[in-house]
Design a protein around this nucleic acid. Sequence first.
DNA 1: GAGTGGTCTAGACCACGAG
DNA 2: TCGTGGTCTAGACCACTCA
Lengths: 242, 242
Amino acid sequence: MTHPAPSRRHTIADDLRSQISTGRLKAGERLPSEAQLSARYKVSTPTLRNALALLQGEGLVEKIHGSGNFVRHPLRRITYADGGWMLEAQSPTEEALRVTVRTANLQAHGHLTVLLKVSPRSPLTEFLCLSHEGRSPHSLARIYVPRDLTPADIPERLLAARLAVLSPPLAEVQERVSARLPTPDEATALRISSTLAVLSITRVATDPTGRVVEAALLVLPADRADAVFTTRYTTGAMGAER
Amino acid sequence: MTHPAPSRRHTIADDLRSQISTGRLKAGERLPSEAQLSARYKVSTPTLRNALALLQGEGLVEKIHGSGNFVRHPLRRITYADGGWMLEAQSPTEEALRVTVRTANLQAHGHLTVLLKVSPRSPLTEFLCLSHEGRSPHSLARIYVPRDLTPADIPERLLAARLAVLSPPLAEVQERVSARLPTPDEATALRISSTLAVLSITRVATDPTGRVVEAALLVLPADRADAVFTTRYTTGAMGAER
DNA sequence: GAGTGGTCTAGACCACGAG
DNA sequence: TCGTGGTCTAGACCACTCA
């Protein structure tokens, strides 16, 4: 056992964590101020803040500058599956996903030219989608479509059920998943700490002619998100469909 | 622009980052000690360490306790695709993936009973795989198979080419991807900081009778890993294969 | 044992949020 | 304005690595 050292911050984090899980601290409740906590645990401010940082990383606590540390509401996990969202164990009081879409026209550049396999400066439409579940931000999506494929109006329920199911039949969808720290913009948009990782999904859809009809850059807070991919093998031994 | 504040640690991190990207600091090279750096930048130790923490999070710097901070070798990205590993842009001096496998017998409990859909205490075989690329740890896998399905000897190249392709034809493979902080054990095994997120992939394979024949828990350092999933739509409009 | 990073202290001062 | 968190300082002491 290489237990590196039950450092003080871990001891404190463990204590607070158990207070949260046993309900002594309830969801939405404000913790005592950092000054009070550091007094109670007899540690210095930085140490106490490190303890809280651990809990933030686990998604148990949300810091709000100027007003305090709060116990987060039990996180309904987001599941990204097969191109759409699912909310886990939908509660009876199912809160709708509000989606804000901002549309913009721009020209392909940099990364986008590669993803969409278009030449630089070719016209694209960007859909910038921010979805909320109740009050809390939920996910962020930037969807790029070649201008000439852009329907006159799809917006609104782009994310609601399933992402941008576009006109031409699709031949292939590739999803690349990685984890990284959010950019400052993403962190503020999703209201997460910039030290909490995000799941980043890059989704590229190709039509039967090989043309890329859509590239979507999705960002989900790591503490709330899963992505699920299912492969079914239909034909005989080992005949993979993907 | 909501530039929160070009705090000192960011200024320092920016400076070091540019020294790395311009080659003034070369891969593998040791940085000056933290004491020297904090003197050079005229900041206190914690501040300097915070700056280094940023670079660690970006995978640019590796700390080794007791010996220093090192510029990481340009990270060959690991791609997990369709149940196997791929190394990106294999260099001519392709370093083999060494895989260490440790086999153990145990009884199902907790999470495993759910994943494998077996009853508690039913016998399982565990393969604990740690793969290295050259000297540096690369990925960690825990693979669980019902005892009666365990081949007498598969080990060794379990991960090498493709994960555990087992005897019975598979009907379905489900992969659940999420990001989280590593457990202390994982952090030391992968030699990453415990503040650097990992991609966690849970892979469940089912045979045509609906029996779960394998559950694999994979852990990959987020700064080096991607997971790619491709869906091909073979039949007419929208007929998804997954 | 010399040198390195790891953790912590006990403050100071600034920036934000709400009344 | 006042209380909150955000950042930083200038040390101290411990733990690890390597010669």
